[in-house]
């Protein structure tokens, strides 16, 4: 509907060309991936590199076929998914309000900023030993690690978004006798959305790292746990299945964020 309006003000012929451009890029990407897989398969088949290290696409598919009919593997996936979801939602629910409030209120910002800035650059996995001692080797410690890793990018992005508000808009709102809360709701919040989604995207990547590292370090179940054991027992193909599961989850979750972004920024220039 909106797109059609846009075309009517003089962007005729723009849309069809764009689609073909997208199609072209999609084809190029597909070819690129297939080429990579074929080279990988050949390198492995002719033992240019020892297949023990790099496995091969076909044996990974084979391993996946057996793993995905095994309920035990689904249990690992379930455990990891649970840890990630719980930790990540916690990071969102606590991180967004704190970041927004810190960006809005200078005093609160002064209180928390030293901690946020310091912890943002600290590799949170360095805290793993202590987290495991405090929360055990079960699910809880992983939730804590995911939370810690995802929390800081989210807080920082919300904070930053609030501090880069367009003063011209605030002036206009004030001239219409807007209250602080109205400015917050009608200018500050909508301005944060793109920044926030960026922070959430960063937090997502960090959270996925947290899952794998946390489970590698000490755990009894989960994709990271399975992957580590597969690696140690030289089941390289199974290990790659784990890597693929995590990578695909990451791509899917990022895709969901992309959709949310589209929904919230339909006003934006393309």
């Amino acid at each position: 509907m909106k797109k059609e309006d846009a075309i009517s003000i003089g962007k005729i012929n723009h849309k069809p060309r764009k689609i073909s451009k997208n199609q072209r890029n999609f084809i190029i990407s597909t070819v690129s991936v297939i080429t990579f897989l074929v080279i990988w398969e050949l390198v492995s088949y002719y033992k240019v590199i020892n297949p023990l290290f790099i496995s091969s696409p076909l044996s990974i598919v084979e391993a996946a076929a057996t793993l995905f009919v095994d309920p035990a593997y689904w249990n690992h996936i379930g455990v990891s998914a649970y840890e990630f979801t719980f930790g990540f939602l916690l990071a969102l629910m606590i991180g967004i309000p704190i970041g927004i409030f810190a960006g809005w209120n200078q005093i609160f910002n002064a209180v928390i900023n030293p901690f946020v800035s310091a912890l943002y650059v600290t590799p949170k996995v360095a805290l793993l030993p202590i987290i495991i001692i405090a929360f055990g080797i079960g699910i809880t410690s992983k939730i804590v690690v995911v939370f810690l890793m995802a929390f800081f990018p989210i807080v920082m992005s919300a904070q930053k978004a609030m501090s880069t508000l367009d003063q011209n808009l605030i002036k206009a709102a004030r001239s219409f006798t807007a209250t602080e809360f109205q400015i917050f709701r009608t200018i500050a919040l909508p301005s944060t959305v793109p920044f926030l989604l960026n922070g959430i995207r960063l937090g997502l990547g960090q959270g996925l790292i947290a899952i794998v590292v946390g489970e590698m370090y000490a755990s009894t179940a989960g994709i990271g746990y399975h992957l580590t054991h597969a690696g140690q027992n030289l089941k390289t193909a199974e290990m790659f299945v784990g890597v693929a599961v995590i990578a695909i989850s990451g791509v899917l979750l990022t895709g969901i964020i992309g959709l949310i972004e589209k929904r919230f920024s339909s006003w934006k220039p393309e």
Binding site: N168, A172, F176, T186
Partner: peptide
């Protein structure tokens, strides 16, 4: 009082009608 500013001050995520309504909405 109301003012037409020298610098652009429309909310980028609101369409024309929503922007024109912004002042009365705040009031």
């Amino acid at each position: 009082r109301s003012m037409v500013f020298q610098s652009p001050s429309l909310l980028p995520w609101r369409n024309v009608l929503e922007n024109v309504m912004y002042g009365v909405e705040l009031q």
